[in-house]
Design a protein around this nucleic acid. Structure first.
Length: 264
DNA sequence: GCAAAATGTCAAG
DNA sequence: TTGACCTTTTGCA
């Protein structure tokens, strides 16, 4: 489930489990083997996330990972299981292991190369001091639909298809509205809301965007089906106005919205 | 046993 | 704008 909150959680977990001690880094699949040797056995300093990118610092070499659509980590304590399938990268420490499969990017970089990647990313709502100003500067001068701009990692980093659709619904924004027509006060409210939503996602590991009054509750726990307003709810009645939720492709990604609540 | 789908990005044309 | 790519899981025959 790789939207930004997932990566920040992984950074935190991996730091807690591995930082401060040597890590055996291997590539059972072989595709990362040569580069793995560059950091194998080194002490891990810290793992950080920026948007959907993960950076593991081993002194002056940094393992950069981007999960893409399919990438996944598995982790555990004690002895690692026998490698199976396409296992790109494995870390093993005294009492912890983690396996990476299917990432879009898994490479060893110099710190200067990391700077280049971060420099082309927009502000991250999960940064310690989030600031959406730079994002709005780009939005305000773009004719592109706001739904496309929100997914552009150079505008905001960390938003994926779920947060995109849900944020637009919560602010009753028509997805095809050109960025330049959004307005600064609307953006300010959206950014603040996004920070709140993603911090909750970071805490819980789940994306829950529905307000309590718009969903049913079962013993306090939010049912998966109740967690979203529009994402993957094509044809189902809107939780607010009962109009069927609509879906269309935009820049090759599925975009969900309520034609009534987000009319315009 | 195979096709389709999944919360993403990049480069070619 | 389109297609390529990364891998696993799910659903249908």
């Amino acid at each position: 489930m790789p939207e930004g909150h997932t990566l920040h959680r992984l950074a935190r977990e991996q730091t807690a489990r591995f930082a401060g001690a040597p890590v055996a880094v291997t590539s059972p699949q072989g595709r990362f083997a040569e580069q793995a040797a560059l950091v194998d056995g080194r002490v891990l300093d810290v793992v950080t996330a920026h948007g959907k990118h993960l950076f593991a610092a081993f002194s002056d070499r940094v393992v950069h990972v981007h999960l893409g659509l399919f990438g996944k980590y598995a982790a555990g304590t004690g002895e690692p299981p026998a490698p199976r399938g396409a296992l790109r990268m494995r870390w093993v420490a005294d009492d912890a292991w983690t396996d990476l499969r299917g990432p879009t990017a898994c490479e060893v970089l110099a710190p200067s190369e990391v700077e280049v990647i971060i420099a082309r990313l927009g502000p991250d709502p999960l940064a310690r001091r989030p600031d959406g100003g730079a994002a709005y500067a780009r939005i305000a001068r773009s004719r592109a639909p706001i739904a496309a701009l929100l997914m552009d990692q150079a505008v905001v980093s960390g938003i994926g298809n779920v947060y995109r659709a849900e944020l637009l619904f919560r602010h009753q924004v028509p997805p095809l509205l050109p960025g330049r027509d959004l307005g600064g006060s609307r953006w300010t409210a959206m950014w603040a809301d996004l920070v709140t939503l993603m911090r909750a996602g970071l805490r819980t590991g789940r994306i829950v965007t529905t307000r309590p009054e718009d969903r049913d509750r079962i013993s306090g726990r939010v049912r998966q089906l109740d967690a979203h307003y529009v994402y993957r709810r094509t044809g189902l009645p809107c939780r607010v106005c009962r109009t069927p939720i609509a879906m269309q492709l935009l820049v090759a990604r599925k975009l969900y919205w309520c034609p009534q609540c987000q009319a315009g």
